[in-house]
């Protein structure tokens, strides 16, 4: 039986498959809930309040908030899924198997982070399909949109993985998604263009990293945004690399993993 110690592909696939199966076991809660929430946002903000909103350019408010809402779901779901995925084995003690198996950082990341990112991609597709039933919108750069959604899903799944390793209780697991990511996303131009903000709030908003994420996705949907697209892509890619470096350090030192 051949075994390649450089990269244990079967090991990575086993983790990936196991994680996806775990997520699908709770499919109703983990897929239906964000879809319903996003639909409500679209109905309330897009259809009801949206008609009273005035945006720069000739973009309808409904199509303006679709990428923002998508980003809201991507950030929270990618982070939650990946953090939960690695935290649960730590909590139940089943992490022993991961630590004793011939899997390293690459196999672990592909397994856990890959599964979380794939689930986010599936969610994104469902939300986009649902949104299309409620409002009329277009995706100007579909390939770039796909690439950007993939990049954001992977990046925030990596962040979730770090949170899952760091957390030593369920409360900590929720702190970052609920107390940091959620407010930053709401204040990051999900429902408005930062052009609409007066100074000094406009300048303050520029230090919110989520602004660049939302605008990056918005550019791929609308072909226009508050910033050049390369800023958004570059910032997300940089954040992804930082997360990979942190996880590499965690595996090297065994921080919160090995005693």
């Amino acid at each position: 039986m051949s075994f390649n110690p450089t990269f244990n592909a079967r090991g990575a696939f086993a983790i990936f498959k196991n994680e996806l199966m775990r997520m699908f076991r709770t499919a109703f809660g983990s897929i239906a809930s964000p879809v319903i929430t996003t639909s409500l946002y679209l109905v309330v903000f897009g259809a009801a309040i949206g008609s009273r909103m005035e945006l720069p350019g000739d973009v309808s408010y409904g199509s303006f908030i679709v990428p923002g809402l998508l980003m809201l779901t991507l950030l929270s779901e990618s982070t939650s899924n990946a953090s939960f995925g690695i935290y649960m084995p730590k909590f139940t003690g089943a992490i022993y198997e991961l630590l004793s198996a011939p899997v390293g950082v690459a196999e672990t990341l592909i397994g856990f982070v890959g599964a979380a990112a794939v689930k986010s991609m599936i969610l994104a597709a469902i939300i986009m399909g649902t949104a299309a039933l409620i409002i009329d919108y277009q995706v100007v750069h579909p390939i770039l949109a796909f690439g950007y959604i993939l990049l954001v899903s992977a990046t925030f799944s990596l962040l979730g993985f770090i949170i899952g390793l760091w957390a030593d209780g369920f409360e900590k697991l929720q702190i970052v998604p609920l107390l940091i990511l959620m407010p930053l996303t709401f204040l990051g131009g999900t429902f408005y263009s930062i052009e609409m903000l007066p100074e000094p709030w406009r300048s303050v908003t520029l230090v919110n990293p989520v602004v660049y994420l939302v605008n990056g996705l918005r550019w791929t949907f609308l072909g226009q945004s508050d910033f050049p697209i390369w800023v958004s892509f570059g910032a997300t890619l940089l954040f992804l690399l930082v997360c990979v470096a942190i996880i590499g350090w965690i595996f090297k030192t065994g921080w919160r993993l090995r005693e």
């Binding site: 139940t92 198997e97 991961l98």
Partner: peptide
């Protein structure tokens, strides 16, 4: 220590694959 909500055969297959 295992995923209590999973099925027996799936957990055993998972272990084999991970190794």
């Amino acid at each position: 220590s295992f995923d209590m909500f999973d099925k027996v055969i799936r957990q055993v297959r998972f272990s084999r694959g991970m190794f």
